[in-house]
């Protein structure tokens, strides 16, 4: 889970619309996914700031160049094909603040539909939170390829991090499986001296945080 600078610089039409609603204290229209006028703008802007990755699991969703700023016109982005789904980070806000930018992330479809759904969150693992650093909250077990809490935090926080790891699907099984299948051969190459850490890092196109946490544990 990389830190995300969720600047809303591209979807400016959506930005004007949502700011107007909020400034006038108007209710958000109900969430109706792709039928909303600004749906693809929101998705494209998020995919750009998330560098084409799932905001929580860092699964690959799209080549970020497919949503690059040059392709935008007047703050709008055309309908397009993509993997992943728009998630309401805090599902309890979906009723009242259905279109709140701060509550949106693009995430892997399996995590959204099969796991997270309306699970509650503690707002500890929120990648766009100011000064968010995954290293402060998380650690990585290279044997199981599971994320665990950073055990240097106090017990209360450790428990809350565990809950967030669970809610956000960081160890959701197909995801941890994909991660293991992807990273294990890379780690083996590094350990056998076939590849350096720097070369391996250049080749990555997903699971950056897990990679960085794991290599600190190599002898």
């Amino acid at each position: 889970m990389k830190a995300i600078n969720k600047s809303l610089e591209l979807a400016t039409a959506y930005k004007s619309w949502i700011e107007k609603l909020d400034n006038e204290n108007k209710l958000h229209p109900p969430y109706n996914s792709s039928t909303n006028e600004y749906y693809y703008d929101i998705v494209a802007n998020l995919l750009w700031v998330q560098q084409g990755l799932c905001a929580y699991t860092e699964m690959y969703l799209i080549d970020k160049d497919k949503v690059n700023p040059k392709l935008w016109k007047n703050g709008r982005f055309n309908r397009f094909q993509f993997l992943g789904q728009l998630d309401h980070y805090d599902a309890s806000l979906k009723e009242q603040k259905a279109w709140d930018w701060n509550n949106f992330f693009m995430i892997h479809s399996d995590v959204n539909t099969k796991h997270k759904r309306s699970k509650s969150v503690n707002y500890l693992l929120k990648p766009d939170k100011g000064n968010f650093s995954p290293f402060y909250f998380l650690d990585y077990d290279v044997v199981t390829h599971f994320f665990i809490p950073n055990v240097n935090r106090d017990q209360e926080m450790i428990t809350k991090i565990q809950e967030d790891i669970f809610s956000l699907g960081l160890n959701f099984e197909p995801i941890s499986d994909y991660r293991r299948i992807y990273l294990k051969p890379i780690f083996e190459e590094i350990e056998l001296g076939i590849c350096t850490v720097d070369v391996a890092r250049q080749k990555l196109n997903k699971f950056y945080t897990a990679f960085e946490m794991a290599i600190t544990q190599f002898s």
């Binding site: 796991h115 199981t144 665990i148 055990v151 565990q162 669970f166």
Partner: peptide, 24 residues
């Protein structure tokens, strides 16, 4: 896609956390 239950998955995370604490 998920042969393990949510409960098992969460318990594994808890156990791995304890293991890391012991190592430390």
């Amino acid at each position: 896609k998920q042969p393990n239950s949510d409960e098992r998955n969460m318990k594994i995370t808890e156990m791995l956390t304890l293991k890391r604490q012991l190592e430390q």
